[in-house]
C-alpha cells in the first residue's frame, strides 16, 4: 500500500501518464461533442433539444463518480492516514463541483423545452443540488481550517457523511415519483437509446472520464509539489539562520 503511495514515485509515474491522458481527452471530447451536436440523428419526440444529453449525462455521471472517488480516498485517509489520499480527495473536489454545476445548468436548459419548466423540486434535482453544496462545503473546510491535519480529518468526515447522498441521487428516480426520467443507460434490458445516439453519448462519457483523470492528476501533482515547497522553505530558513 505505502509502496505505491510514495509521493515521489506517484509524481514520477503520473507525470508520464498526464500528457497522454490530456491528448486523449482532447481527441475524444472534440469527436464526441461534434458527433452529438452535428451527426447524431434527431429524436422523434424532442427534435434537436435532446442533443443536450451529450453534455448533461456525462457531467451528471461524473459529478457522482467524482464524489465517490473522494469518499473512497477519505476512507483510506482516515484508516491509513496517508497524505496522498487527502490530497487526492482535495484535488478532485473543484472538478466535481464544476461537473455538478454543469449537470444542473444543462439539465435546466433541457427541462424548459421538454418538461415546460427550468426547475422543479423533485427528488433527483434536489439531491443533485445538495451534491453541489456538499462540494462547496468540502472545499470550504480546506479553506477555513488553518491546521492542515485537522482540515484533512474534518474534510474526510464531510466527504464520508455526504456520500450518503450518492445512492439517493442515483435511485431517487426509482424510489419516488419524480419529473426526471429513470436511467437510460444503466438499466435492465439494455440502453434506452438507439445505437446512433448511444455511441456518441458513450464517447462523450469517455471524454469526461479522461478529462477527470487528467485534471485531477495535475491537481494532485500541484498539491504534492506545494508540500515539497513548504518543506524546502522551512529548511532554507533554518539554513539561513544557521549561516547568518
Amino acid at each position: 500500500m505505502h509502496k505505491f503511495a510514495n509521493p515521489a514515485r506517484f509524481l514520477r509515474i503520473s507525470k508520464m501518464i498526464t500528457p497522454w491522458c490530456f491528448f486523449l481527452t482532447i481527441v475524444t471530447m472534440v469527436a464526441g461533442l461534434y458527433w452529438g451536436l452535428f451527426i447524431a440523428p434527431e429524436d422523434y419526440q424532442m427534435g434537436a433539444s435532446y442533443r443536450i444529453i451529450f453534455v448533461h449525462v456525462p457531467a451528471a455521471h461524473l459529478s457522482e463518480i467524482c464524489y465517490g472517488f473522494m469518499a473512497v480516498a477519505s476512507v483510506v485517509a482516515i484508516i491509513w492516514k496517508h497524505p496522498l489520499a487527502d490530497q487526492s480527495a482535495r484535488a478532485a473536489a473543484p472538478v466535481g463541483a464544476v461537473f455538478t454545476a454543469l449537470a444542473l445548468f444543462t439539465g435546466s436548459l433541457w427541462g424548459k423545452p421538454t418538461w415546460g419548466t427550468y426547475w422543479i423540486w423533485d427528488a433527483r434535482l434536489t439531491s443533485e443540488l445538495v451534491l453541489l453544496f456538499l462540494y462547496f462545503g468540502y472545499m470550504a473546510v480546506w479553506e477555513a481550517v488553518e491546521d492542515r491535519t485537522k482540515a484533512a480529518r474534518i474534510a474526510a468526515i464531510v466527504a464520508l457523511v455526504g456520500a450518503v447522498n450518492l445512492p439517493i441521487i442515483k435511485f431517487s428516480v426509482d424510489w419516488w415519483n419524480t419529473l426526471h426520467q429513470p436511467a437510460s443507460l444503466l438499466r435492465a434490458g439494455g440502453a434506452g437509446l438507439h445505437p446512433d445516439m448511444l455511441w456518441p453519448l458513450l464517447t462523450c462519457i469517455l471524454a469526461f472520464y479522461l478529462f477527470f483523470v487528467t485534471v485531477v492528476l495535475w491537481r494532485i501533482q500541484s498539491l504534492i509539489i506545494r508540500r515539497q515547497i513548504r518543506g524546502l522553505q522551512i529548511r532554507l530558513a533554518e539554513e539561513e539562520r544557521a549561516n547568518g
Binding site: 440523428p41 429524436d43 426520467q181 437509446l193
Partner: peptide, 29 residues
C-alpha cells in the same frame, strides 16, 4: 394551473420510429 410533460428514458431517431410504425410494431414505451 400548470402542466408539465414527463419524458421517458427512450431516445430514437425519427426515421426509425417511422419505419417501425409503418410495420405496425411501434409502441410508446
Amino acid at each position: 394551473t400548470e402542466v408539465l410533460a414527463k419524458h421517458d428514458e427512450n431516445y430514437m431517431p425519427k426515421e426509425v420510429v417511422d419505419s417501425l410504425k409503418k410495420r405496425g410494431v411501434f409502441r410508446h414505451a
